[in-house]
């Protein structure tokens, strides 16, 4: 399952008003570590689809969102619950490390 793209227009509906927990992957084409972590997030999304919704925000195309959430380093993975950021993971990590960071939202 490939994480779907969310934009400035759809962020409120898809992320902030989502009843499920949502992980937003802030990324860009030119960021090597972002491309490396993307398939790992897709795997996690598939394996935990009932618990966690995983979406992507392209920071090039959505600079307002990057600014609003004070993104200064990508990949930045932010977990939202009830419209609030409850967890931030920065940097590409191997799957076991990422799963450990996100354990509270996957179980």
């Amino acid at each position: 399952m490939t994480a779907r793209a969310v934009t400035e227009a759809t962020f409120e509906a898809e992320v902030l008003n989502n009843e499920k927990t949502v992980l937003v992957d802030f990324w860009a084409e030119w960021c090597g570590p972002c491309r490396a972590v993307s398939p790992i997030l897709d795997q996690i999304a598939t394996e935990h689809s009932e618990k966690l919704d995983i979406v992507k925000v392209n920071v090039d195309e959505n600079p307002q969102l990057a600014m609003k959430y004070q993104i200064t380093s990508i990949p930045a993975m932010k977990v939202y619950q009830g419209g609030e950021v409850v967890k931030t993971v920065i940097g590409a990590k191997p799957k076991p490390a990422l799963e450990a960071d996100l354990a509270a939202y996957l179980a």
Partner: peptide, 17 residues
């Protein structure tokens, strides 16, 4: 502050500055 202004990857993070 790593990831909050401190970076090791200019090509990844320069864009935000």
């Amino acid at each position: 502050l790593s990831g909050h202004g401190v970076s090791w990857c200019a090509t990844c993070d320069g864009f935000f500055f």
